[in-house]
Design a protein around this nucleic acid. Structure first.
Lengths: 205, 205
DNA sequence: ATGGTAAGCAAGTAGGTACTTGCATACACG
DNA sequence: CGTGTATGCAAGTACCTACTTGCTTACCAT
């Protein structure tokens, strides 16, 4: 029964690197150090194997949650953004391939969307709480929905595209904090400049 | 010579739908209504054909530019964001596949990155101009670089992921305007609420 | 009329793909 | 000891892949 896990792990690696079509059963079996026949005996077919990979990946990277009652928005958002970034980065290759193959393998769509949905719900609920507590501005010129979409887009973009054009993004250890600050600005929340930005500015003088 | 263009167009469609591995020469030729041999006589190989497709796509969708001297930031940004959204949307399937296949076909990387780079340069230059003219806030708590990254991420995310989860995004005809407003808020520029948001708010009462 | 050029058609090459079958081996449990 | 279970190995099936070759049309310009 140890074969099953070795195959799953190898299939995850190979699929992430080559996509569904490029992930040949021969290559997966060889990467797993297992006979190709064992792969078919264990999972039945290539599609079934890759479906198992997606389910396992989904279970291995649980969502992070924002607190229901905000206390320190800057800190809580920074932590949440950081964890979201790491989560998406961990599944980035699988995610990108799933998006590309969505027309041919619609079952991959759920994998590509569910995390996004949950994160979106999480952040909008948090902002609603911020508004009810009077922390966030509820004026007409503050567009909460658009701000939430922009934060999510930022997280996705950073986690996926940083690998291709790293120089366009803030340093890894500052990114979450600075995104959080910008997000709060969009909501009309006054914040202090985060430490990393203050450092950069004072050095620039 | 008419075959060349028909093959290029068909190859673009098939590649966008199935990716490099899935875009078989047989399928491309059949979609183009052309004999498979003609495809090889015209382009030499499958890789050469797909390279020609990427070059043609790149030329067919030129960058949009922001004015060097801002006059109406809200309007100029809205227009630019709208055009960027449309541009990325037009090449979305190619872009997604190029990102997925970047490890196997590094020549696709340039296609995936160049547009992003140019847009980033464009928006940062524009914001610098805004600051020099005193329109945008230059305080320490305004993080121009992070704001630019967030705007670009928003555009990429909207153009790519809206197709999968359309209900999470603002309506198509409002998106650019609302992103522009949020972006200006991040920069500390006071704006009126855009028309579409005001309408939504007044109807909600 | 003649020659060049673009194109179609049929067939073939060499290799890869998912997946199957039959048989041999090892190990664990009663 | 015997028996089931997991695995390996060799071979084979049926099909798809990029790409080639040889031959035949059709048209266009000189």
């Amino acid at each position: 029964m140890i074969s099953r896990e070795r195959i799953l792990e190898a299939a995850g690696r190979v699929y992430a690197k080559h996509g569904f079509r490029g992930a040949t059963t021969r290559l997966i079996a060889s990467e797993a150090g297992v006979n190709e026949v064992t792969l078919f005996r264990t999972f039945g077919s290539k599609s079934a194997l890759l479906e198992a990979v997606l389910m396992q990946q989904h279970a291995a990277h649980p969502e992070s949650e924002l607190p229901l009652e905000p206390i320190d928005p800057q800190l809580e958002l920074t932590t949440w953004i950081q964890m979201s970034l790491e989560r998406v980065r961990a599944i980035r290759p699988l995610l990108v391939h799933s998006m590309g193959e969505i027309e041919e393998r619609p079952e991959a769509a759920e994998f590509a969307c569910r995390g996004r949905r949950m994160a979106h719900d999480s952040i909008t609920a948090y902002v609603r709480a911020l508004q009810e507590m009077g922390i966030a501005n509820a004026d007409a010129d503050v567009d909460v929905d658009a701000a939430a979409v922009m934060l999510m887009g930022t997280v996705m973009s950073d986690a996926i595209a940083r690998a291709f054009v790293p120089d366009l993004y803030p340093p890894l250890d500052e990114a979450a904090e600075r995104y959080a600050t910008c997000f709060l600005h969009m909501l009309g929340v006054k914040t202090f400049a985060p430490q990393s930005v203050r450092n950069a500015r004072s050095q620039a003088q």
